[in-house]
């Protein structure tokens, strides 16, 4: 009896392994996309932009082209490798690790799983043959925001609440400085960093400080900026305004303070990744994102802030936007901005 049970168990295990392998082979051509983010996919900022891009790409690609999409939120760098391994074991073959803080984990995972395509941002470095890096050239969006701030301020004093001085935020922030200086060289620009990407409370505290110091136009990058926008909205009856880094901010309750906003368009990035996957290319390239290649979008808040969008401001921004759409890399001097000399 004992031998019979053991034989049956062995048979079940062997058959299970055979069928499991067969199943895997049958589904090899399927594309399954996983997203790993540090915040949430509805944060009205950095993470939501990527999530929305994936959803839009799925709608645009032939039905079923992406067989499955999953996202894991609130991920710390220490948890990232575990999340990646879990997804790989579940058969996900395009894994997007969205945030510059995850670089070391992506480098390790790329070596561990050479047959899986990874996408990682933000960096302009080529990381591995199976990693596509994406780098939003956010100095362009920052520059446009800076033009608005520089032309809107009545006291020649504007402020910026940044997360950390790195990644695309560093580019946006420095682009903002250059944009302000291009239209209002006399303007004083206060730049502060809260030290992380998610603390909206601290972001609000910094914004309150900037407003008390006299800034009348503020901007901010990454998802933490929502706290700063909320602080601006506290001054309902005062001439204090905001320029956003995500179009979703225009629709918020605080949107009446947001003159305009830019946004990342990750749909094009994802469609590019799927096409590369179909061609058997898993990475080894950097995908730049700019206005020229459709990586950014721009929107005015004509519904709520029409009186702040003067013809002069609109013309200055639209002219620069047309230049950006025509030629990429026009704000290549962004890295020369030194905050200590402002």
């Amino acid at each position: 009896m004992k031998k019979l049970i053991v034989s049956l168990l062995i048979a079940v295990v062997v058959l299970g392994a055979v069928f499991a392998q067969g199943g895997k082979e049958a589904k090899k051509s399927e594309i399954k996309v996983a997203l790993i983010v540090s915040s949430t996919i509805d944060d009205k900022g950095w993470c939501q932009a990527m999530h929305d891009g994936i959803v839009q790409a799925m709608a645009e690609l032939p039905k079923g082209k992406i067989a499955e999409y999953k996202a894991v939120e609130n991920t710390q760098p220490s948890d990232t490798l575990t999340a990646i391994r879990t997804y790989v074991n579940q058969g996900f073959n395009i894994i997007i690790v969205h945030g510059s803080q995850f670089r070391a984990q992506v480098e390790d995972a790329a070596k561990e799983f050479p047959d899986v395509m990874f996408a990682f941002g933000t960096t302009s470095d080529v990381i591995a043959p199976n990693v596509f890096s994406y780098m939003p050239e956010s100095e362009e969006t920052g520059f446009l925001s800076g033009i608005i701030a520089g032309m809107t301020t009545k006291v020649n004093h504007v402020g910026l609440v940044g997360p950390i001085d790195g990644g695309d935020s560093a580019r946006y922030n420095r682009g903002f400085v250059l944009g302000v200086q291009s239209v209002n060289p006399k303007a004083k620009i206060d730049v502060v960093h809260i030290g992380n990407f998610n603390d909206t409370v601290k972001s609000g505290e910094f914004a309150q400080n900037l407003i008390q110091a006299g800034c009348d136009v503020l901007t901010g990058s990454s998802q933490q900026a929502l706290g700063a926008l909320r602080a601006v909205a506290e001054y309902r009856d005062r001439d204090i305004w905001w320029v956003g880094q995500d179009l979703a901010q225009l629709d918020l309750a605080e949107g009446y303070k947001c003159i305009a906003a830019s946004s990342y368009n990750y749909k094009a990035v994802l469609i590019g990744l799927v096409e590369a996957f179909d061609q058997g290319k898993l990475g080894g390239e950097v995908i730049p994102m700019n206005f020229s290649n459709g990586g950014f979008e721009w929107g005015w808040n004509t519904a709520k802030c029409a009186d702040k969008i003067t013809p002069a401001i609109k013309k200055a921004v639209e002219d620069k936007l047309a230049e950006f759409k025509k030629t990429a890399g026009l704000v290549s001097n962004w890295s020369s901005v030194d905050y200590s000399k402002l």
């Binding site: 915040s39 949430t40 944060d43 939120e73 609130n74 992380n196 998610n198 603390d199 909206t200 409370v201 601290k202 609000g204 505290e205 998802q223 929502l226 706290g227 909320r230 506290e234």
Partner: peptide
């Protein structure tokens, strides 16, 4: 207090070590 009097909004991880 943080959501009602200071941040006037909630986000995941709003306490952030406090």
């Amino acid at each position: 207090f943080l959501t009602l009097c200071q941040a006037k909004q909630f986000s995941a991880g709003i306490i952030n070590g406090r």
